[in-house]
């Protein structure tokens, strides 16, 4: 039972990633894509969580945390880029 549910949920996550991917490809605007990427990252976190349940291992818990961190950092980076063109800036620019 649980296995089935996990499987279904995994599939659903994959589908949502696919939709997000469609958004990235299609656009139409840059923020759309960024949002979609962010979403993919977040979906991946869930997927890893579920997979580690499936595989019955704790080995991937670090990955979850890292993915969380990175999703955050890359989202910031991308938004910075969209916003300002450069992702790290000098004080003097301001």
């Amino acid at each position: 039972m649980i296995d089935k549910i996990l499987l279904v949920s995994l599939t659903l996550f994959v589908i949502s990633i696919a939709i997000a991917l469609f958004r990235i490809i299609k656009g139409p605007s840059m923020p759309d894509r960024a949002v979609a990427l962010d979403m993919i990252g977040v979906n991946l976190i869930s997927m890893i969580a579920i997979i580690s349940i499936v595989l019955k291992t704790k080995a991937f818990l670090e990955a979850i945390l890292i993915l969380g961190i990175l999703a955050f950092i890359s989202t910031i980076a991308i938004s910075r880029y969209i916003e300002r063109g450069a992702i790290i800036e000098h004080k003097s620019d301001n």
Partner: peptide, 17 residues
């Protein structure tokens, strides 16, 4: 990971800080 922490610092503030 340590490096990304530092990068996050760069991102949230600026180079000179």
């Amino acid at each position: 990971v340590l490096a990304s922490a530092i990068i996050l610092l760069y991102l949230s503030t600026d180079l000179e800080t």
